[in-house]
Amino acid sequence: MRIGIDLDGTVADNFDLLVDTFNAYCGKLLQGKDIKQYSLCKTYNISEQEFNELMDQKEEGIITSSPLIPLAREKINRLVEEGWEVHIITARHPKYKEITENWLQNKGIPYTGLHLLNSHDKLDLCRELEVRYMVEDNIHNAYQLDDGGVNVILFEAPHNQCWPWQGIRCHSWAEIYRIIDNRYK
C-alpha cells in the first residue's frame, strides 16, 4: 500500500515563514488567516518573476527552518510500521533535494521515495506509483488529482478553506491517520 504526501503545508509547517518573508518584502502585515488563495503572487500583488527571485534568496532558509506539523512524525512513522510505503511528492525544485533529505532525516520522517517535481502537476506520478491516498493542501492540486482518480485527503489550510471540496478534509495528522486506519483495517 502506498501513500503520497505533499511536503510543504502538510509535513513542513512553513506557512508562517512564507507569510513573514513576503510581508517583509512587500511591506505588509498579513497573517496566515488572511491568505485565502494558494498563489502568493496574487495575494501580494507581485509578478511571478519577483516571486521566483525572492524564493531563490529565501527558500533554502525557509526549508531548513520549518518546524514539523504537529503529529506528522508520529503518524507517518505509524503508517510505515503498519506496512505503508510513503512517497513524499513535492513541487519543490530538485536543487533542494539534499537539504530536503537532511530536513526529513533530522525530523525523523521516514519515506520510501522522495520526489521533487518542480511542478504542481503530481497526477502522473501518483498514478505511476499507484498511491492509495495523496495528502495535499493545494486545492488546485487536489482538484486535479481527484479528477484523475486519485483519492485525496485535503489538509486544511487558510488558503483552501474558502474553496468547495467534496472529498475528505482533515485538520490534523490524527484525523488523517484515523481515516486511513479505519479504511484499511
Rank of each mutant, 00 (worst) to 15 (best):
G4N: 02
G4Y: 00
D8Q: 04
D8Y: 05
V11K: 01
V11Q: 02
A12Q: 03
D13L: 11
D13K: 10
D13Q: 09
F15M: 13
D16M: 10
D20Y: 02
F22R: 00
N23V: 06
Y25D: 04
G27H: 05
L29D: 12
L30F: 15
L30D: 01
Q31A: 11
Q31S: 09
K36G: 01
Q37N: 11
Q37W: 03
Q37A: 10
Q37S: 11
Y38T: 08
Y38A: 06
S39H: 13
L40F: 15
L40H: 03
K42I: 06
T43L: 05
Y44S: 05
Y44L: 11
N45P: 00
S47D: 11
Q49L: 09
Q49S: 11
L54V: 06
L54W: 03
Q57P: 01
K58A: 10
E59F: 13
E59P: 00
I62F: 08
S66H: 04
P67D: 11
I69F: 09
I69L: 07
P70H: 11
E74F: 02
K75E: 04
K75L: 06
I76V: 14
R78Q: 14
V80N: 07
V80W: 08
E81A: 11
E82C: 08
I88D: 00
I88V: 13
I89D: 00
T90E: 04
T90N: 02
T90S: 15
A91Y: 02
P94E: 03
Y96P: 02
E98A: 14
I99P: 00
I99Q: 07
T100Q: 06
N102L: 15
N102S: 13
Q105S: 12
N106L: 15
G108Y: 11
G108H: 08
G108P: 10
I109P: 00
I109V: 09
Y111F: 15
Y111D: 08
T112V: 09
G113R: 10
L114I: 10
N118Y: 10
D121C: 06
D121R: 11
L123P: 00
C126W: 01
E128F: 07
E128R: 14
V131R: 01
R132Y: 09
Y133A: 02
M134C: 09
M134W: 01
M134Y: 01
V135I: 15
E136G: 03
E136H: 03
E136V: 04
N138W: 03
H140T: 10
N141L: 01
N141Q: 15
N141C: 15
A142S: 12
Y143H: 12
Y143A: 02
Q144H: 13
L145A: 04
D147K: 14
D147I: 07
D147R: 14
N151D: 14
N151R: 09
N151I: 01
V152Y: 01
V152E: 00
V152R: 01
V152W: 00
F155Y: 13
E156M: 09
A157L: 04
A157I: 01
H159K: 08
N160M: 12
C162D: 14
Q166V: 08
G167Q: 06
I168A: 02
R169F: 07
C170L: 07
S172D: 04
W173L: 06
A174T: 14
A174G: 12
I176S: 03
I176D: 00
D181M: 07
N182H: 12
R183T: 05
Y184H: 10
